[in-house]
Design a protein around this nucleic acid. Structure first.
Lengths: 127, 127
DNA sequence: TATTGACATCAAGTGCACTTTAGGATATAA
DNA sequence: TTATATCCTAAAGTGCACTTGATGTCAATA
């Protein structure tokens, strides 16, 4: 079973130009071509794309993903490095979660603050 | 009590050029100047900067912050709009948290997967 | 056979958020 | 008074991640 770039786009939520862009950046070294030069995505390629989505959505730069993929191509000897990279990234995700949670309370506080002001104004009007 | 731009930078963690940039973008309409034209930040300005940090770090674009500040300048009549904006942003933060948590498990899974492979390789070597 | 639609490449363009550079004024310390 | 530090502006530059536009090929349909 193989998919066109349009299929791949629909399956992953990435735009077609973005997928092409990722390929030129070396993020999709496995994708085969048809006789006429069209990309043919297999299920593994779709999985790759989903992993890329995951890493990009959590803030990993394209160049790091490229590095990661380079290590995958090199084979088993790079398992440790790959593990390290992912572990680092997990840490980074946790930091983002902390930052977000921290600022989330600040925003909440501000919302309550404005609600208080609003209430005050309303009561003033009703005097 | 008033602070130089360097002080403001140290208190907020923003770089000096970033603070200047925010001012040119209209994010700091209150900051006074000394006779010689130097910026003088009061405590409220520092608080403003901290709010800007909060909003920026949680993904609010500069132009939205500008809009928000514009509403603050307009006065009480904009309280509802400000509340709406912050509530929207809170929602956005929650979405980011969901996304991050979702992908966090994917990364965890991948880490465990590589750990499994690693173990397998080690055992193969030890045969 | 002419048109339509999906695919391709390549180069250039876009948007955002800063950062850097160049040139100059002012204040404090040696 | 000369050097050093800090401030200023305005304009240009940077980095990243795409996106868009121009041009062309190929296969199926009207």
């Amino acid at each position: 079973m193989s998919y066109t770039i349009k299929d791949a786009s629909q399956k992953t939520g990435l735009t077609i130009p973005t997928i092409r862009y990722y390929e030129t950046e070396g993020l999709l070294p496995y994708v085969k071509r048809s006789e006429t030069g069209n990309r043919m995505f297999c299920d593994d390629d779709i999985e790759w794309l989903n992993l890329i989505c995951c890493l990009r959505s959590t803030g990993m730069p394209v160049r790091y993903i490229k590095k990661f993929i380079g290590m995958c191509l090199e084979g088993d000897s790079t398992i440790d490095n790959r593990l390290e990279m992912l572990t680092e990234h997990e840490k980074y995700i946790n930091e983002q979660l902390e930052t977000l949670n921290h600022y989330k309370s600040a925003v909440k506080w501000k919302i309550d603050y404005f609600k208080g002001i609003k209430k005050e104004i309303d009561e003033r009007v009703n005097l």
